[in-house]
């Protein structure tokens, strides 16, 4: 395989990274109101959020991309492949992040809420000063492994024509008929991408754990 082939695959790298980080960001942000609705005292809101999360997570990612790109994109409003993939994966990430947040919140001992009430901290302060920082620590490892999972998930975007890693690999293998080498190389790039995430997550977790020493 020539250097030119390697560069052909590498052209997909920025798209994979952009799609991964973009979808994760969308999910991490939208996950917050979603978990708030999921935990709301207002029953219909809680119910709606639950249904939404179930539906989003219940349908395969590839189908979501088809629905958005071929379905909505062709009939309702034109949408680029990248934006369709970002919307679809962002939606899925939001549902998953909401569940990760929910688990993290549930792990906070009720005594922390009680102490906050007894100290008369307002709801906002209880959340931002007491609960969220502790929940963040709990959510961090699951969020990091979800980020790695999401990165691999972005390969489905190749099916609607986003020229990310898998897409470039597919193109190249059809040009060169050397699928084994090409896809092995593509696979290696995915692994290389996941390493810094795993490493960062471990460092952050170790740091937070050392600080609290529990």
């Amino acid at each position: 395989m020539s250097t030119a082939d390697l560069f052909a695959i590498l052209r997909g790298l920025p798209w994979t990274v952009a799609l991964t980080l973009g979808a994760f960001l969308v999910g991490a942000v939208l996950g917050v109101p979603l978990v708030a609705a999921r935990q709301s005292r207002i029953l219909p809101l809680r119910f709606l959020a639950m249904i939404f999360i179930q539906i989003v997570r219940g349908i395969p990612p590839i189908l979501w991309l088809f629905i958005i790109f071929f379905g909505l994109g062709m009939s309702v409003f034109p949408i680029s492949p990248f934006n369709a993939a970002l919307a679809g994966l962002g939606l899925i990430a939001a549902a998953n992040m909401a569940e990760i947040y929910r688990g993290a919140l549930a792990s906070i001992h009720f005594g922390q809420w009680e102490a906050s009430s007894a100290l008369n901290l307002g709801r906002w302060s209880t959340l931002t000063d007491v609960v969220a920082p502790q929940a963040f620590r709990v959510a961090l490892p699951s969020a990091a492994s979800y980020l790695i999972g999401l990165m691999k998930e972005t390969a489905v975007a190749s099916t609607i024509g986003v020229s990310e890693l898998a897409f470039q690999g597919n193109q190249l293998s059809q040009l060169t008929f050397r699928g084994l080498e090409v896809f092995a190389l593509v696979g290696m790039f995915y692994i290389l991408l996941s390493l810094p995430v795993a490493w960062l997550s471990r460092v952050a977790d170790g740091y937070l754990q050392a600080k609290v020493a529990r």
Partner: peptide, 17 residues
């Protein structure tokens, strides 16, 4: 009401972070 009441719990409930 709570402004005038301080409370100490069996399990301390300090903020660990």
């Amino acid at each position: 009401l709570r402004r005038s009441v301080g409370m100490v719990f069996q399990s301390f409930n300090l903020f660990p972070h």
